[in-house]
Design a protein around this nucleic acid. Sequence first.
DNA 1: ATCAATCGAGCAAGCGTTTGCTCAATTTTA
DNA 2: TAAAATTGAGCAAACGCTTGCTCGATTGAT
Lengths: 347, 347
Amino acid sequence: MQITIKDVAKHANVAPSTVSRVIANSSRISQKTKERVRSSMEELGYHPNIHARSLANRSTQSIGLVMPSAATKTLQNPFFPEVLRGISTKAHQNGYSLYMTTGVTEEEVLSGVIEMVQGRRVDGVIVLYSREDDKVVQYLRQTKFPFVVVGKPFGDASSITYVDTDNYLAGREVTKHLYNLGHRCIAFIGGSDKLAVTQDRRNGYATALMEAGIPVREDYIARAEFMTKGGAKAVRELLRLEEPPTAVVVSDDMMALGVISTLSEMGLSIPEEVAVVSFNNVYIAEHSNPPLTSVEINIFGLGFEATNCLIEQISDSAPPYGKRVIVPHYLVVRQSCGQKKKTEVIE
Amino acid sequence: MQITIKDVAKHANVAPSTVSRVIANSSRISQKTKERVRSSMEELGYHPNIHARSLANRSTQSIGLVMPSAATKTLQNPFFPEVLRGISTKAHQNGYSLYMTTGVTEEEVLSGVIEMVQGRRVDGVIVLYSREDDKVVQYLRQTKFPFVVVGKPFGDASSITYVDTDNYLAGREVTKHLYNLGHRCIAFIGGSDKLAVTQDRRNGYATALMEAGIPVREDYIARAEFMTKGGAKAVRELLRLEEPPTAVVVSDDMMALGVISTLSEMGLSIPEEVAVVSFNNVYIAEHSNPPLTSVEINIFGLGFEATNCLIEQISDSAPPYGKRVIVPHYLVVRQSCGQKKKTEVIE
DNA sequence: ATCAATCGAGCAAGCGTTTGCTCAATTTTA
DNA sequence: TAAAATTGAGCAAACGCTTGCTCGATTGAT
């Protein structure tokens, strides 16, 4: 059987309540008693029962994680482990542990979240994506449960705390970079249109083109799944156009990987015939062939900051309005985007 | 305030205990009452408080996950997300949720585990690695808490339930494959020597050499960290040898990635000058340059099976002795290992 | 029609902690 | 020196749920 607070109390010759207060390090207990109780705890190998504590306490010291539906697929994108690293680092620092539910459909995910929240399983929730018309965010909002979103939320963003990259700016910069390298036919391959990240990056792309006086062509904008296969398919279609692009902005490294393997298969050389840039700069971007030019968005930082915000909210030290944290990004130039003509570079 | 079982009871005009039994779908309650109670639950939006339930119940419906220490680093290896996918799929199917603690040092990890176990936070634990002299496994074993190991445990393996790849065999096969391609100078680059997986793969490698009548050279066996940088360093040393190897068996795809980028940097062509094979066949193996020949070990399956075994143990439907599940593997041949002379292939 | 068996539902005692109150002992103040 | 203030610790009531027992009502057997 488990060792309870009562056993410790008996062993130390005090009341259970005293033991509890020793654990909480209450000032109402004398130093002497504290020490006696502590050594009893040590001796008996006491560990508090988390459920009893949560029940009495109404707090759980754990954080719920919401992955996009079909999390099982999602975990294949290195974005998630990395953001998880950031979250778990901060959570651990503050004595929180992590609680995950997964679900295949959107409904399943929502009911998982409801269970977490209503069942008082967690003190707060981090939503790891931002999608249009998302039921999870709606629910969390209306129940006024502490939560933060990784990505820019839809609707009344001002009342929601979120952590994000300035994807619009990043999209613009990347496109401009290609323009500066001399490209005029630049395509965009994005993930699901419902995702904030796709929209922002695409808008940035479009803005950059307009600024450069290049019309935005609908047939240069492709959509695909956030994984390699989607990227492969999208690029095939683009190259079938009468005037195929000489450069593509791809909204995600994994998709970009698909793009470059497809290009290689088709016998097109990168970056000479088609230049490629993408976002996230996940681990493997550096090791692909050729290495990917990508926007470093500090995924770890996104997770870390999100957790920070959440803990602030939980401990009521957060302002009552939504807070917004933008994590800085920068372009990491590698081979996949090419460079200006050699001569110019040498100069 | 939360809606409790009492509220439902009042609303449905029954006793709280009846509501509880309705939830448990006890046969002692008539169909009519069940329906009435259920509609009350629905109407009030009732969700059971998980902590109260666990407290009364002594069960938590959640599974603890133990990552190797410095989990923050570990998550960078795609092995973990993938095994997580397997675990979370099976767990979800059976209504379990996942609970993670992380820790930087071995001590931290251990105390996290102790907290999970003694604090009755989880019903069972999955250990995601196998290392020599591991305190976590020792602890779990002596407390007789349900747990399963992913990887072959040390010590009295027969009493521990574990799920593993036949790494010894895989190491042998891979080495033999290189031998068959004509290689006679084959090196091995492994991760930490304390890990079961490293030892097994290395032993398989050595066996294959012996079977082929090739002496095992100490200076052909390098050790490195389980990530790209380690691989890079190790290969540099091997190539400094008087008689450098023409092929390397690398114990992990991530390290192999480091190996091949280093080789490229040094101007050596793969597979012509140095052939490379590795293990795990993670997502990116296919997309590296050149694509990696790697052993597909079904990481997802490892996670899935491990969870399955654990749930069996928790629900007492497992045998009292340690069970062993070996998940099959197979070699996926891609460019990095080269092939026999063209003519022979064509024949 | 009577008694035993069966069925459906309620009572109340936990599960292990926390915490507002109470109260005795000690110290301070007048 | 007596009264007031302070300190340290205990009592007992939650927290929300489960479950062994009890008990009245229904059913079936005699």
